[in-house]
Structures are given as C-alpha cells and as structure tokens.
Amino acid sequence: MEHEKVVGKDAAGEGTGTDAPSRTLWSDAWHRLRRNRLAVIAIIWISIIVAIAITADLWVPQWLGSPTDTDTTMSSTMSKLPPSAEHPFGTDALGRDVLCRVIYGSRISLAVGVLATAISTVLGLIMGALAAYYGGIWDTIIMRLADIFLAFPYTLFVIVLLAVIGQGIQNVFIAIGILGWPSIARVFRSAILSVKENDYVDAARAMGASDARIIARHIFPNSVASIVVYATMNIGGAILTEAALSYLGMGVTPPNPSWGIMIQDGQQYLATQPWLMLMPGLAILTTVLAFTLLGDGLRDALDVKMKDA
C-alpha cells in the first residue's frame, strides 16, 4: 500500500521537482520576447535614447553647449565644422553643435510619439469598444466616421488641422493623436468581436455584471495584446510624422531643435557638409526602426499560437 502511495504521488508530479511553474500571458510573452534578438536590440536602443533625452540637462550643456543659443562673435569660425573629437557630429551653419541639437531633438520626438499615441489609443479604445460591444447603429456611425478619417491623406489632414488650431509642439501631438484613432479603433473592434461571444462573457452578463465591468474586466484584458503591438509601432509613425511636419515648417518652431528642422536646414549643404542632414536622418531612421522591430517582436511574443509546447 505504501508503495502504491509513493507511485501515485510521483505520477501526479508532486515532490519530484519536475513541475514547471505556471506563467501568465505577459510573463510568457516576456520569456519569448527575450529570445528575439532584434527586439532585444530595439529595447536597448530605445532605452539608451530615453536615458540620454531625460538626463541631457545634466551633462550636454557643459560638454556640447546650448542647442539654441549662438555666439555671433564665434559663428564665422565655428560654422559648419566637420565631425571631430570636440564636435562628434560637427556644427551647423550657425556654429551650434549638431550632436547637442540631435539629443535635444530626441526629447521632442519621443514626447510627440508617446503623447500622440496615448491620445489616439485612448480615443481608439473608446470608439472601438462602443462599436464592437453595442453594435447596431453605434457600429455603423463609428465605422463610417473612421472611413471618413481614413479617406483623407494622413499628413495632409494633420497639416490642415494645424492650420486651423495653430502651430506649436502641443498642437502637433494633439493633431497627430486626434487623427490616429481610426486604425486603433478598427483593431480593437476586431479583437472585441472575437472574444465577446465567449462563455465567460455570457456568464458575467448572466450574473448581472454591468457593460462597463464586462468590457474592463473580461473583454479588454483578452483584447489588449493587439493594441500593445499596434501602439508600439504607432509611436514610430508619430515620430516620423512630427519630423515631416517640422520639415515642412508646420511643426516645431525654430530655434527649438527638431530632427525634421535639422534635415530641412541641412539639405542645402548635402553636397559639401553632408553631416548636417545625415546625422538627424540617422536619428530618425534608428529610432523609428527600433519601435517597429519592438512592435514586431511583441506581436510574435503575444501570439498564443506561437506558444511553446
């Protein structure tokens, strides 16, 4: 009898030390994300950019000078210097250090990317939830409104909105955020439609749970994975849009540093002083690519179909 008890205990997997700890969706996703080398590189690069942007005031002015102030007495001798140990990215036409302006420009780009994505995500979640959960006339109105927004060229629509509400960094991320909700609403609507008819939703409704509670506690947690992926990629798109607006003169106002303004100022010197345009261009390229690779890695990590057996 004792032998049978021992065997039964081993068969159940207790006491043998072979039990694998259960993982949640997010811990399991993090486990798979760490094995994606491109995503890890993207996380490291984004972390470096964020750390540099946050701590810039502590060391950049002492090492590289001001991103906006110019010394008229030294501008003739400091103008358009090539990259060197003293000025790693060279200097611009007014003698300002290009690396300094790239670093401070990252603050604006990251702020616009995060804040604009936050606005569009909140609006998209609300509109998508209303359209998918209630359906009927709500679904028709919201989706047709989304079609109207998507029918216009995105950048042109942002320019028109900025022309109405005015320029400025605050209006830039407001305009980008307001016009970015339709895509997120469509993604969230599709995710909700795939889970709202599940048994646990019907059980919660039968127990008298309110619509807000059902959406917040049951539908949203099971639909949020696709939104996390889309929002991460959307940050890169917002950064690119801000750079395009600043390049066209509709975004950040000089002398504030912006990657788009730096490219616009440096394009006329591309043949003789290419660093004036290439350095901010590389900053845009690497940052947008990092958010795209991170979003791609999150998509694979959060895909339950790819879960290891």
Rank of each mutant, 00 (worst) to 15 (best):
Met1Val: 08
Met1Pro: 14
Lys5Gln: 14
Val7Glu: 11
Ala12Leu: 15
Ala12Gln: 08
Ala12Trp: 09
Glu14Ser: 11
Glu14Val: 14
Thr16Cys: 08
Gly17His: 04
Thr18Pro: 10
Asp19Lys: 15
Arg23Lys: 12
Thr24Tyr: 04
Trp26Thr: 03
Ser27Cys: 03
Asn36Lys: 10
Ala42Glu: 02
Trp45Asp: 04
Ala53Asp: 05
Trp59Thr: 09
Val60Leu: 05
Trp63Met: 15
Leu64Trp: 01
Leu64Cys: 02
Thr68Asn: 13
Asp71Leu: 05
Thr72Pro: 12
Met74Phe: 09
Ser75Trp: 12
Met78Pro: 07
Ser84Glu: 05
Pro88His: 06
Ala93Gly: 13
Asp97Val: 07
Val98Tyr: 04
Leu99Pro: 07
Val102Arg: 04
Val102Glu: 00
Gly105Glu: 01
Ser106Ile: 05
Val112Ser: 05
Leu115Ser: 11
Ser120Pro: 10
Ser120Tyr: 02
Thr121Gln: 05
Val122Cys: 12
Leu125Asn: 01
Ala129Asp: 00
Leu130Met: 13
Leu130Glu: 05
Tyr133Pro: 09
Gly136Lys: 10
Gly136His: 09
Ile141Trp: 01
Ile141Glu: 00
Ile141Asn: 05
Leu145Met: 15
Asp147Gly: 11
Phe152Gln: 09
Tyr154Ile: 09
Leu156Cys: 09
Leu162Cys: 03
Ala163Phe: 09
Ile165Gln: 12
Val172Met: 07
Ile174Thr: 08
Ile176Ala: 05
Ile176Leu: 14
Leu179Gly: 02
Gly180Thr: 01
Pro182Gln: 06
Ile184Asp: 00
Ile192Asp: 00
Ile192Asn: 00
Asn198Ile: 00
Asp202Gln: 13
Asp202Arg: 15
Arg205Cys: 06
Ile215Gln: 02
Phe220Asn: 08
Asn222Glu: 12
Thr232Phe: 02
Ala238Leu: 07
Ala243Gly: 06
Ala244His: 06
Ser246Leu: 07
Tyr247Ser: 03
Tyr247Arg: 11
Gly249Gln: 05
Met250Leu: 15
Ser258Met: 06
Trp259Pro: 08
Gly260Tyr: 04
Ile261Trp: 08
Met262Gln: 10
Ala271Lys: 14
Gln273Glu: 13
Trp275Pro: 09
Leu276Asp: 08
Met279His: 12
Thr287Trp: 00
Val288His: 01
Leu289Gln: 09
Leu293Asp: 00
Asp296His: 02
Asp296Gln: 07
Gly297Ala: 00
Arg299Met: 00
Leu302Phe: 05
Leu302Val: 00
Asp303Phe: 02
